[in-house]
């Protein structure tokens, strides 16, 4: 693997992927920090892993089922207490689809 280093634009792209707003002033420091971390983790490329199965999880568990019985959910009053903007049983967000009028 050839050594990779993030550019200013890469940093902005990664911030976008992360849904985190960053300012122009933050870019140089972030670039330096992220690159130092990437430099370090790229040392792994020197370790041969051809044919090694990846382990995503320690225990081989899959499809853990429970009985299909209904359970009480939270009351909407409780959810309303922790939501930033909640009205008539809905979370309120800015308009997503523009109207034609």
């Amino acid at each position: 693997m050839k050594k990779l280093s993030l550019s200013d634009n890469d940093v902005k792209h990664v911030a976008k992927l992360s849904a985190i707003e960053i300012t122009e002033e933050e870019v140089p420091t972030l670039k330096e920090q992220l690159n130092s971390i990437l430099d370090y983790v790229q040392t792994l490329s020197e370790i041969p892993t051809r044919g090694v199965e990846p382990t995503f999880h320690i225990h081989p568990v899959s499809n853990v089922f429970r009985d299909d019985v209904h359970q009480a959910s939270y009351k909407s009053e409780e959810i309303a207490k922790i939501a930033p903007d909640f009205k008539d049983n809905f979370f309120r967000v800015p308009q997503i689809i523009k109207s034609n009028s």
């Binding site: 792994l44 490329s45 199965e53 382990t55 320690i58």
Partner: peptide, 15 residues
């Protein structure tokens, strides 16, 4: 593949 999968392969080797 170069990062996440690689790291999980290393995990197998560590185990």
């Amino acid at each position: 593949d170069a990062y996440y999968k690689k790291a999980q392969q290393i995990r197998t080797l560590v185990i």
